[in-house]
Write a protein that binds this DNA or RNA. Structure first.
Lengths: 119, 119
DNA sequence: ACAACCTGTTACCTAAAGGATAGTAATAAC
DNA sequence: GTTATTACTATCCTTTAGGTAACAGGTTGT
């Protein structure tokens, strides 16, 4: 079992950025800092889940949380420098999803997979 | 919302290869074809789940299933050519997980994330 | 006083993912 | 006839992810 180490690396990555929202959040934050409510509205995530995801991303050093003393208080979430390291991952996933979608449209499958990005 | 399309691509990819096992299976199959029981033993997955994951991967054109007429019957699972397209994704995830692990070991985090690949 | 707005939290619930265990069907070996 | 091997299915169960809804705490505006 010589490649066990690589397998664990994949699993580690999935532990940190897996799930429905984490990569999406990071991707959206590449566009610039956002407030809590902007995020809920922009990606359609419930506040409960958003709060949890943001906290986990913060623990893993991927985003920064800054409380602004506006009235009422707002909180800015932005990418920590460490998120730069995820660019390759995000680009790879993004490219593949796009290519996959085109393959589906072109009818290159015997069976019938589904794609969210086909309207 | 100019980048919505890219977001959907990411979600599509996660739909196809997300979850606990799919990428691991593909990664392991890069090593060559394997039989059902070899896979259960090698990665420690229950037969029920393995069967489901393999079928889903097959539907998405990522692996091939070949029944050999040995006695007793054996079934060979191997990568379909389409899996080649996932190499970038796997490499990116693998690299990041490894780098992340090193960052944790080096103590570059305020809080304390965990890593499977640290013994 | 009252509503409106922001960032959350809390409690509750459902659905899906995944795991444990046993069993089936075919064949062959002992 | 019993046991073993292979590739599964079937059944049951636990855990986790994620969603809904309500509300708290603070502040500003009416």
């Amino acid at each position: 079992m010589k490649y066990k180490h690589a397998r664990l690396s994949i699993q580690d990555t999935m532990d940190v950025v897996g799930g429905k929202w984490k990569l999406i959040l990071i991707f959206v934050l590449f566009d610039g800092k956002k407030k809590f409510n902007e995020l809920t509205r922009e990606i359609g995530i419930s506040p409960r889940v958003l709060s949890k995801e943001l906290h986990e991303l913060e623990v893993n050093g991927l985003i920064k949380r800054r409380v602004c003393d506006t009235k009422p208080v707002t909180v800015e979430y932005s990418l920590a420098p460490y998120s730069e390291s995820l660019k390759d991952v995000i680009v790879a996933l993004c490219k593949w999803g796009e290519a996959h979608r085109e393959n589906i449209i072109a009818g290159k499958f015997d069976m019938s997979p589904k794609s969210k990005s086909i309207l």
